[in-house]
């Protein structure tokens, strides 16, 4: 299936939608691409990366919050990273899409790298997800 979503590769009991994709940017002037297991989070208004994923790139900090996420967690807003993931296009074929919206960065490596609804809106995509069978897709709207 194009734009395929599945359960986490590291936690098979997880009923949330994941997709292996990547993040790209630069580090010390050279292009860098890092593979990541995106958790597609319908409760997220902004993509949020773990510290280790974000620190693989030279990103420009533009702001921050000590209380922006559930439970009062903080994020720093950074620019310069491009998320990459796959959706099913209107013809039913796989289409790799990119978004360069600012991202939030966690202070630690707890949890997943989150692909937010901002990113889906940015590329014109929607989500189908069946938590019973742990299967679904991202598709072009």
């Amino acid at each position: 299936m194009c734009g395929k979503l599945a359960s986490s590769k590291t936690k098979l009991s997880d009923r949330r939608p994941h997709q292996t994709g990547s993040a790209s940017g630069t580090k010390n002037g050279s292009s860098v691409t890092a593979s990541t297991d995106w958790l597609v989070d319908t409760g997220a208004e902004i993509a949020i990366l773990t510290k280790d994923t974000a620190d693989r790139f030279d990103l420009l900090p533009t702001g921050g919050s000590a209380s922006a996420t559930t439970g009062g967690g903080g994020i720093l807003i950074k620019r310069g990273l491009t998320t990459e993931f796959e959706i099913q296009d209107l013809s039913g074929y796989a289409k790799t899409v990119h978004s360069s919206l600012d991202v939030g960065v966690k202070p630690n490596n707890n949890g997943s790298d989150l692909l937010g609804m901002d990113q889906l809106k940015d590329v014109g995509a929607a989500i189908d997800w069946d938590p019973v069978n742990r299967s679904g897709r991202l598709y072009e709207t």
Binding site: E45, I46, T62, G63, S65, A68, T69, T70, I75, D102
Partner: peptide, 28 residues
């Protein structure tokens, strides 16, 4: 909304840092 908000303040004050909080909701 977070992205239009960030875009707007960054255009108005380029190079400056913004401290913000979503009030009575969370971004993720």
């Amino acid at each position: 909304e977070i992205h239009p908000f960030l875009e707007s303040v960054n255009q108005e004050f380029p190079g400056r840092m913004i401290y913000f909080e979503p009030i009575r909701f969370s971004l993720a």
